[in-house]
């Protein structure tokens, strides 16, 4: 149990998706002009990660890994399908995003209003595919571990983009050299925020 909690805290602060691995930077830089939309996108990423990573975990564990197919027949003990994992993961993600979009539209119109415009963007967000690939690399023992990893990474991403958007809103009133305005200063701020987050390394 304490394992699961540790993975959660680690993935929020120390292995933060943005500050330690730069995943999902494109949408992070593009959709952080104001706090409200940034928070919306952050929630959507968090939600999709929490759904897709455990699903991909089960697929990886029972279909793709070497010896994963032994539950069908012992003849498959040496079958290794892990080279297919990239294409399967991305297909699962695109499928789940499409499914969520339809479910939201039909049953949760309020959530659809808030997250709807971001969902199509998310299928090609590297944070989502990255979450599944890191999950595969880390070899979590149970699905609960992967769930806590996914939730933690999602919350870390949400935290990072919201903090960054808040700083960017204040930045409108700052005097920045002409050539550094826009993306230049955005990179440098993210770098400084990342250094701040590195303080958690000692925890």
């Amino acid at each position: 149990m304490s394992d699961i909690f540790n993975i959660f805290v680690r993935s929020v602060f120390i292995d933060n998706m943005i500050f330690a691995y730069f995943l999902g930077m494109c949408s992070y830089l593009a959709v952080s002009k104001n706090v409200k939309t940034a928070f919306g996108l952050g929630l959507a990423v968090c939600f999709v990660l929490t759904v897709t990573v455990p699903v991909n975990y089960l697929i990886d564990k029972y279909l793709l890994r070497e010896g994963a197919l032994t539950w069908i027949s012992s003849n498959f003990a040496t079958t290794d399908l892990s080279f297919l994992s990239l294409i399967i993961f991305i297909a699962v993600i695109a499928g789940i995003v499409q499914l969520l979009e339809m479910v939201f539209e039909r049953y949760l119109p309020a959530l659809n209003m808030a997250l709807g415009i971001f969902l199509p963007l998310i299928a090609v967000n590297c944070a989502i595919l990255g979450g599944s690939l890191f999950m595969q690399e880390r070899n979590f023992p149970t699905v609960a571990h992967s769930l806590s990893y996914a939730l933690g990474s999602g919350i870390g991403w949400l935290l990072a983009i919201t903090a960054f958007a808040a700083i960017r809103e204040r930045l409108k009133y700052a005097k920045i050299p002409l050539a550094l305005q826009g993306n230049g200063i955005a990179y440098i701020i993210t770098g400084l925020l990342g250094m701040g987050f590195m303080a958690f390394l000692g925890m």
Partner: peptide
Amino acid sequence: PPMALILVGVMIW
């Protein structure tokens, strides 16, 4: 990792 971001920022500058 953070220095990569700062270097790219400086390149853009």
